[in-house]
Nucleic acid binder design. Structure first.
Length: 833
RNA sequence: GCGGAAGUGGUGAAAUGGCAAACACACUAGCCUUAGGAGCUAGCGCCCAAAAGGCUUAGGGGUUCAAGUCCCCUCUUCCGCACCA
């Protein structure tokens, strides 16, 4: 078609034009006040760190969320779709050291740049609710929450072994240490240091955080499992062993107290206080224990803590089993961890694989105390690990089942005061102190007279000083700002020192989504009524890398806020979606691999619509997506086809006005059927499966089918109302995926208002049904032929059609048809002998 | 070791237990042309010269009239946890 060439799709003209118009209308993506009569829908993508550049992972994340937000607008919901910046953190300080730019300036200029990228990508965010966590109007509420937690004993200070990253020059939370390495520095071994630090008592909610997972059925099972593992609940018993000739006691933790008569030694962690005490009086032991510690450290550095050889050293002292008075040797073992359970275990080599390995190595006796429940069964080899057996060699408890024995042993221990049932969690309290500058100051004051004194509410925010030299290394940078440090004690008025540590940046992201509901509030973190209206988040979308970190901290914070009476929901998000990574050439995009594709480059070459639509089309959203430039070019060509098709027939469509297509037939009917099938499919994709790759494919099929009858369109054979319905609905369906093109074409078609506020097209069930169906015919399960039958044909008619088919006839000739299965609309299968 | 997800053309992938490979990318051939990162037509899982036909969803068993899909075993890849007592 010669005239087709006149019409050229040029996103570099269309997109900036609409970007300008949208920027001029701040109400376009604004959520209604929370008393709106329409049902609410809160869709949220995780907020980015303002590194300076969006990457393709962001583009994908936000393309998914934006498509959903636009779809929900079109479905008539009051949609909240906000965006903000996780703006505190180490990179700003590192950049400052490198370029001599203040962290605040670096961060704010990055935010401005990334905001432009978001706008250029056509993301529909409600910027009137923008949250920037490094600004005092936000972080003052971090301080406010910290004080509330302090009042309730949920924030506290203690000296303990903490993770120290030498590259970050700060302490890290347990959640930020991965395989003994820093989460930000893959090659940096995290050291252990003894420091006084602030902690948040997340363990107070351990059980609730665990139980809540069962109800989060809108969360991926993977994330729930990861959190369950992380919380690591373990039910067991603590038993106190006496120490011969000494006053100390040793408490051991065990999940198998039923095997306690088989305990032939007690094993202590090398850092256990009793070991320290014994070693203080025994230079030889001290030397050996130090060797064990050195070895552990090396294993940690090698990253294979689980693989080191189990070994230990005898202390020469003995423990007394309180159940039978038996004297067993006390060892120090390198596989016993101080920070799990009590840091001490009873070793039962007969019924524990690891204890068995250890006992064999050091010729410690192995004793059978559990036998199979079936007394006729052959005696199994040790170690025998089953929990279904009965006790033997266990004094008065012999003959009991393992389960019954556990119960009775606990009762005896409790009655006699040497033990109790306990529950141990792997989850540890959240260490939030950071010896860095660019974070929320912890609102505490150290007074010589009054000790730790919280900053009174009316003195919040404790402002982060702007004029600071952070080029010096060592210690908290805030400690070098005398105006900041030297204060008077709010209690006694005497001289005092301000806390110089700042908060972990994960504090910022633990509650930011509540602030969106009332972002400008200067009297409280947010009005409870606003949060009450919008929460929980209906759909949260982000990367799975936050499965433990952000997603467990923010669940904790929600429970604390609930207990403070600010909110009524127990969980922050009803549904969570974790999208896959964007990879290229088989590897995650990263600067070091040199396989990074810049969104700006994609946008300038193919347009934002093409980049976004490709991100949705190339793979289902939960899978990894392989970025292929040829694929983006393909989507761009498709958008060009849509553009030319709609522009070419826009005047025909407009001429129909609001006139509906009447009793369509022939090609018109065929096209309208395809149209309504497409609507039904895409609506379903949004509602449940989220396979937007097939939504896009369905639109492509529809466009292919319309294009195939171009001659009939050009000749005017297709009535204008049909053309109108086809093109208008096509544009509406494109709107969530390619907003710029949809806006442009909506305009071409004379549509009223913004296309993303137009109602989502309903699919007409009458029209999704075909007149005739193709039904495959199988013989013994193998496809033989396909017959056409009316779509309302009953089983008898379908069977008759199948038997009348020539191919079928020739195949069953001379044979016996044993059985015929007819599945209406699906298949016919003849069982033939 | 424990737990989870996955394995389908040259590539990305599609398929409520009912015609495997839709939709694209790449490739091949052709057309068109004010030559563009354009458009159009056709072909494109494997075997066979072609047709007819046969084979095909990591491998092996099973359930079923019917299995990529459900069950069992094995292998591979990715992810999480891991001396957790």
């Amino acid at each position: 078609m010669a005239e087709d060439k006149e019409i050229r799709y040029d996103p570099s003209v269309i997109e900036p034009k609409w970007q300008q118009r949208w920027a001029a209308d701040p109400t376009l993506y604004a959520a209604d006040a929370f008393d709106s009569g329409r049902p609410k829908y809160y869709v949220l993508e995780m907020l980015p760190y303002p590194s300076g550049q969006l990457h393709m992972g962001h583009v994908r994340n936000y393309a998914i969320g934006d498509a959903l937000a636009r779809h929900m607008w079109m479905r008539g919901y009051n949609v909240l779709h906000p965006m903000g910046w996780d703006a505190f953190g180490l990179p700003a300080e590192n950049a400052a050291l490198k370029n001599n730019t203040p962290p605040r300036q670096w961060t704010l200029s990055n935010i401005a740049g990334m905001k432009r990228q978001f706008e250029r990508l056509g993301m529909g965010f409600d910027w009137s609710r923008e949250v920037t966590t490094c600004l005092p109007d936000y972080y003052r509420w971090n301080q406010w929450f910290f004080l509330r937690m302090y009042e309730r004993g949920l924030a506290y200070r203690k000296k303990s072994k903490v993770n120290w990253c030498p590259d970050c020059a700060t302490v890290l939370a347990n959640e930020q240490v991965i395989d003994g390495r820093c989460w930000r520095h893959e090659d940096t071994i995290v050291e252990q240091r003894d420091l006084v630090q602030w902690f948040l008592r997340i363990t107070a909610y351990a059980q609730e955080l665990l139980d809540g997972l069962d109800k989060l059925d809108g969360w991926p099972e993977k994330v729930r499992t990861m959190q369950r593992n992380w919380i690591g609940r373990s039910e067991g018993t603590e038993v106190e062993f006496g120490v011969e000739n000494r006053s100390e006691k040793v408490r051991v933790f065990t999940t198998r107290v039923d095997t306690i008569f088989g305990a032939t030694s007690v094993q202590l962690a090398p850092e256990h206080p009793l070991v320290t005490a014994l070693a203080a009086a025994d230079a030889g032991l001290k030397k050996q224990v130090n060797e064990l510690l050195e070895e552990q450290k090396k294993a940690r550095e090698a990253g294979d803590v689980g693989a080191i050889d189990k070994h230990g050293v005898p202390t020469g002292h003995f423990a007394i089993n309180p159940f039978n008075g038996e004297r067993v040797p006390i060892w120090v073992a390198n596989y016993v961890l101080l920070d799990y359970g009590t840091g001490a275990i009873m070793s039962v080599p007969g019924h524990d694989a690891r204890d068995f390995e250890f006992a064999t190595k050091y010729a410690i006796p192995v004793r059978r105390v559990i036998a199979p429940a079936d007394s006729n069964a052959e005696e199994p080899e040790l170690p025998y690990l089953s929990e279904d057996g009965v006790l033997v060699n266990s004094g008065e408890f012999s003959g009991l089942s393992c389960e019954a024995a556990q119960k009775q042993l606990r009762e005896v221990a409790a009655r006699q005061g040497f033990g109790e049932a306990t529950i141990t969690f792997r989850l540890k309290d959240w260490g939030v102190s950071r010896q860095r500058y660019w974070g929320t100051p912890i609102p505490m004051i150290h007074c010589e007279r009054d000790g730790i004194v919280p900053v009174p509410d009316d003195q919040l925010p404790v402002l982060l000083p702007e004029q600071i030299d952070i080029t010096q290394q060592g210690g908290s940078p805030l400690g070098r700002v005398p105006e900041f440090v030297n204060v008077t004690c709010p209690k006694c008025g005497g001289p005092a020192r301000r806390e110089t540590d700042t908060m972990d940046t994960f504090v910022d992201s633990s509650w930011y989504f509540y602030r969106y509901t009332d972002a400008k509030n200067s009297a409280e973190p947010f009005a409870p009524a606003a949060a009450q209206y919008w929460f929980p988040i209906d759909q949260y979308i982000g990367g799975v890398e936050h499965a433990i970190l952000h997603l467990i901290y923010s669940r904790f914070w929600t429970k604390v806020m609930r207990d403070l009476g600010l909110i009524t929901n127990d969980e922050p998000a009803r549904r969570l979606f974790t999208q896959g990574m964007v990879i290229k050439d088989g590897a995650k995009m990263s600067k070091s691999k040199g396989n990074v594709v810049s969104p700006d480059e994609m946008v300038s070459r193919f347009g934002a619509d093409a980049a976004r639509m490709y991100a949705l089309f190339a793979a289902p959203p939960d899978r990894d997506l392989d970025w292929q430039e040829d694929g983006v070019a393909g989507v761009s060509r498709f958008l060009g086809r849509v553009y030319r098709l709609v522009v070419k027939y826009a005047s025909v469509a407009r001429s129909a006005g609001e006139q509906a297509a009447e009793s369509p037939a022939g090609t018109s009917l065929k096209l309208l059927r395809k149209l309504h099938q497409t609507i039904a499919k895409i609506t379903l994709d949004f509602e449940g499966r989220w396979h937007f790759n097939t939504s896009v494919a369905a639109i492509m099929e529809l466009v292919n089918e319309i294009q195939a009858v171009d001659a009939q369109l050009a000749s005017g054979e297709i009535p204008a109302p049909v053309v109108h319905e086809l093109l208008r609905t096509l544009v509406l369906m494109m709107a969530p995926f390619a907003p710029y093109l949809a806006a442009e074409l909506w305009d071409e078609l004379g549509g009223e208002g913004a296309v993303f506020r137009a109602p989502w097209p309903p699919s007409n069930p009458e029209l999704t049904r075909e007149d005739e169906l193709e039904v495959p015919v199988q013989i013994n399960g193998k496809l033989v032929s396909v017959v056409r039958v009316p779509s309302d044909a009953g089983p008898d008619a379908i069977q008759a059609a199948a038997l009348a088919d020539p191919k079928v006839k020739s195949r069953i000739e001379g044979k016996t048809v044993v059985k015929i299965i007819v599945v209406p609309r699906k298949t016919v299968n003849l069982v033939v002998k």
